[in-house]
């Protein structure tokens, strides 16, 4: 993926509405901000604060051929491949999670060449977003050199440092078309507060040309202003705010719910026994057929939601 020219980045930013205006919208309206073929960066990491609700909305809207990028990719990557949402994922690691082993679906798609898993080191993904966030075309780094990971990616350069003469790797900036980020709290203007682990979300929001926030709760601007140090993403980078309670389920949202282990075990069983056909049925049942987000959550069930929420709140116990 080529580095976006600086002039383009500045022009696009200049053209965006950066005023303190309300941006609350429906899942469907937010999905309309994403075009087929866009580069869409996903916030969170592995099983944490994954923007599942936004991905759910994009798959339902029939978006195709996105390039997805994320720090680490869990089973949302399977869903993207099988639904056609994306056949190109840039990430550092891709499987449901260590405890469930390899993703049979990822394997089937990538080993047959039907989809691409473009592998960068974790820090390289982070520095690429950071370069994008900083408005510079690259970041120098001291990893990936000497490995075959470097041989298989395009767009990097090695250079001798003009100050010290040391060998450095230059990582090309990523400026995603869209960032999807799930948070605990956000106001109607897009001031997003994140509790706990931040992952790469702040850099992704700063680097992207459009940002869609899904949030456990929409809170008042007064509440945001009472604890502005908790605001991690400022309103002027945000284009859409969607209220999505349990919006990362079956993954976790720090302090609100832990992973839904029953659901994740069940999903792992589906992929292990039925492979991509099983995922297709899962998509029908949980993504395409439900009337709305509440319908999706009904498939997970009240008992599991209560259990995950009870475990989630435990971070606040002494």
């Amino acid at each position: 993926m080529a580095v976006t020219p600086y002039e383009t980045i500045r022009e696009r930013t200049r053209a965006r509405d950066r005023s303190l205006t309300e941006k609350v919208m429906s899942f469907e309206e937010a999905a309309a901000l994403v075009k087929d073929g866009d580069h869409v960066a996903l916030g969170g990491c592995t099983l944490s604060r994954t923007p599942i609700a936004a991905i759910w909305a994009l798959i339902r809207a029939g978006r195709k051929d996105l390039v997805l990028s994320r720090s680490i990719t869990s089973n949302e990557g399977d869903l993207a491949y099988v639904s056609g949402l994306s056949s190109h994922i840039m990430t550092s690691w891709f499987a449901q999670g260590i405890v469930w082993g390899l993703s049979k679906v990822m394997r089937a798609y990538t080993e047959s060449g039907r989809a691409e898993f473009e592998e960068w080191s974790h820090m390289a993904m982070g520095l690429r977003y950071r370069a994008g966030a900083m408005g510079v075309p690259f970041m120098p780094a001291r990893s990936m050199m000497g490995s075959n990971v470097l041989d298989r990616v395009a767009g990097t350069k090695e250079m001798d440092c003009p100050f010290t003469g040391e060998r450095l790797l230059l990582l090309p900036a990523l400026n995603p078309d869209v960032a999807l980020i799930h948070v605990q709290r956000c106001d109607a203007y897009g001031n997003a507060q994140i509790d706990g682990l931040q992952f790469m979300d702040i850099d992704i929001a700063m680097a992207a040309n459009r940002v869609i926030i899904t949030t456990e709760r929409i809170v008042s601007n007064d509440q945001i202003r009472r604890a502005p140090d908790q605001t991690k993403i400022p309103f002027f980078t945000v284009d859409a705010v969607v209220e999505a309670p349990y919006g990362s389920a079956p993954h976790e949202c720090y302090g609100v719910y832990e992973p839904f282990f029953n659901e994740l075990d069940a999903y792992a069983k589906i992929t292990a026994t039925e492979g991509e056909e099983g995922v297709r049925k899962y998509l029908d049942r949980c993504f395409y057929e439900p009337e709305d987000w509440a319908g999706y959550l009904s498939h997970i069930g009240v008992a599991d939601i209560l259990d995950a929420a009870k475990r989630g709140r435990r971070v606040y116990d002494d």
């Binding site: 550092s92 891709f94 394997r107 898993f117 080191s121 990936m144």
Partner: peptide, 11 residues
């Protein structure tokens, strides 16, 4: 076999 990849391992 396509394995899960580096994660932070390479770094």
């Amino acid at each position: 076999t396509r394995l899960p990849g580096t994660g932070g391992g390479n770094d």
